[in-house]
Design a binder for these strands. Structure first.
Lengths: 131, 131
DNA sequence: TTGCGCTATGTTATACTATAACGTATATCC
DNA sequence: GGATATACGTTATAGTATAACATAGCGCAA
């Protein structure tokens, strides 16, 4: 299943499960609520530490424009596409796109580029519903 | 100078001036501090209202990955490039890039696409300094 | 086996980012 | 003058994130 995973702790596994079960990114405090349902008293650092570890393991990423978190499985490569109606998020492949951008920047001396690309709008399904 | 400007209020002009005078994006609370220096008591909504109006006027934009704000002049088109060493931000033109992404999404039925593209790394100057 | 270092977690407190809700002042138009 | 609209002041609170310190468990070497 995972890539980059290496024996997750139970905290981390629990957070990851919740994110994978959701059909949209979750905020840290939504996750906190779920954890508290599961286990009683849980404090924010518990959630944030799990999020940090999972992000470093490449298993989740933060959706900056939503201040929320999603499993990498749903959001794969470089470009995150977000439907503002139904809240779903997916990744789209963008082969040439990232490379050409990278080349441009490297040519200008810019180093260690890491990009965030997020697109908001309405997905096909939701756009149809309005027709 | 401005485009999209239409008689700014003095609040808005003051916020815009601070952002234009800075050499890096500023957070809302940094701006709040400056306003308090200038004028005494100022509360967060004053700053956030100005930021909202300026954003709607196309004069500034939020840098999502920094939770901070920059004048559009320094960040012009679609791609924001951020140096994590010196904090400076600039916009780079990316002609084909946005269009090809847009076409892709439209072809899939995705509507009203608005993209956020931010690149972190080290600018040429800072990369040199490490050499 | 004891003690050390390491990692994860618990716990408390606080910092930082953003908005809700309501009141007041001013301008404009009729 | 009264109605409306806009911006701003003010108070309070919601929402996001981390600092700092304490504790527990594990692996391992002396």
């Amino acid at each position: 299943m995972g890539q980059g995973a290496d024996h997750l702790t139970s905290n981390q596994a629990q957070v990851l499960d919740h994110l994978r079960a959701a059909n949209a990114p979750m905020t840290a405090y939504q996750l906190l609520g779920r954890m508290q349902n599961d286990r009683g008293a849980v404090a924010p650092p518990t959630v944030y530490r799990a999020l940090k570890a999972l992000e470093e393991a490449g298993l989740i990423r933060r959706i900056e424009t939503l201040r929320a978190w999603a499993p990498v499985a749903t959001v794969r490569p470089g470009v995150v596409v977000i439907c503002d109606d139904c809240g779903t998020v997916r990744g789209v492949e963008a082969p040439g796109l990232l490379e050409s951008l990278h080349e441009r920047l490297v040519a200008e001396g810019f180093a260690d580029a890491r990009q965030t690309i997020e697109v908001h709008g309405r997905c096909g399904d939701c756009a149809e519903d309005r027709a």
